[in-house]
Nucleic acid binder design. Sequence first.
DNA 1: CGAACACTTGATGGTCCTCAAGTCGAGTGG
DNA 2: CCACTCGACTTGAGGACCATCAAGTGTTCG
Lengths: 240, 240
Amino acid sequence: MNELQSSAAIDKYAASCTNCVLPGLCLRSGMPPEDVERLDRLVYTRRNVKQGKDLYRAGDPFSAIYAIRSGFFKSELVLQDGRSQIMGFHMPGEVLGMDGINAGAFACNAVALEDAEVCVIPLSRFEEISHGFFGVAHLLHQIMSREIVREQRMMALLGSNAAEARLAAFLVDLAERFSARGEATSDLKLPMIRKDIGSFLGLKLETVSRLFSKLRDEKLIEVRKKRIRILDMAGLKQLL
Amino acid sequence: MNELQSSAAIDKYAASCTNCVLPGLCLRSGMPPEDVERLDRLVYTRRNVKQGKDLYRAGDPFSAIYAIRSGFFKSELVLQDGRSQIMGFHMPGEVLGMDGINAGAFACNAVALEDAEVCVIPLSRFEEISHGFFGVAHLLHQIMSREIVREQRMMALLGSNAAEARLAAFLVDLAERFSARGEATSDLKLPMIRKDIGSFLGLKLETVSRLFSKLRDEKLIEVRKKRIRILDMAGLKQLL
DNA sequence: CGAACACTTGATGGTCCTCAAGTCGAGTGG
DNA sequence: CCACTCGACTTGAGGACCATCAAGTGTTCG
């Protein structure tokens, strides 16, 4: 529906990868400048998503992938019985929507945890252009493969049975992803609620809360609602 | 190292997607005939892997992806402390090695559970050819996306806390994959040991054994060692 | 035939879930 | 501004489920 906006609006939100504020992340990471310029041609528009609204829902036809410019997202899988399972949290510089390529429809809901902005990369353009555009094709493969590896690590985490280790791994992972974006690595703002953390880690929200308290008692972190401060990163990593 | 074999051996094992026995699966699923012929040019050789041997190991340079012609594989992630986590089981018609694209090295060990044969699709060729070969590029994207979705479903399974449901889902998934290959859907030969099933599902081998016995007592399956017969598929699905 | 491995089954204990009560903070309307 | 409400979070008590430890059977292979 956003593709239907007026051309004035398109101009207003016209994206420019060349001038993108994201520091060498997103789709253009490691790209030579001439490729970044060509990448510009793939990106028609940006799109704003209000907190709590979704970027896409499971079953929506797969029409684009999205690069996050600002704001956190969660992706959730809704099961037949109505319960939902959090599949991951996504921060600026990361790419959303790769799960839609297979069936031609998105497999998850992508919900904004804060007011957010994304770059829209329409499907129609991207396979067409990457066809004659070697850098993009390889980059796309890398991003998809990274997604596969990320999920493999997550499966390994869920398979390991220590709840405390899972939460520690969750915090370490977030800290490293913040750090890769040049942000503070010890002072984390977690925009997601305890229930979603629990769903992601295969735990109940009460367990998550108890474990935060436990890590606090062990002097590994400080907890103030959604602000988590890491006091002893080495100690956290030792729990894995 | 297999790429170094004599040209006679190469001829002997020369693959032909056109004549492949796999019924519309593997890489060529849904491809127009002229594309299948072009696909032939990507596939240099086949390679045999003896039971218990590995096709590749974590850290090996990513030099090819592999389409399984015969035999089961498991992929395992070895953690720092030496314990290993099973990431998945793979049957003929499926593709192995997608996790290597990202870092340029494989992330998992791929181990043959039976004597097996794979088609080797060298990296050097495939990105080069898919560059000027639209059908392959799209197909590759689909296969990678399918892998992402498969792992998402697996994560959802591990997040749900019912051990019996996990094992039931495992059996249903296997039955459906056999069925997609035109094989018997109720009489399954599981080439993997209980310990690996447990690792995959986040359970201990004793629990897996107990759950097989429980499903047997509930008249949902018959258990004879590695042969599992599904007596009540609807009943199994109801456990999810 | 012996040894190593795969598997099954039992007893016990720990971890995490369930149910429940209560605090804190944000947002709303009187 | 305060009372109210609602959602997010914390903490406690009890119990279910699965892991652990252990013993024993069956199978494979040199």
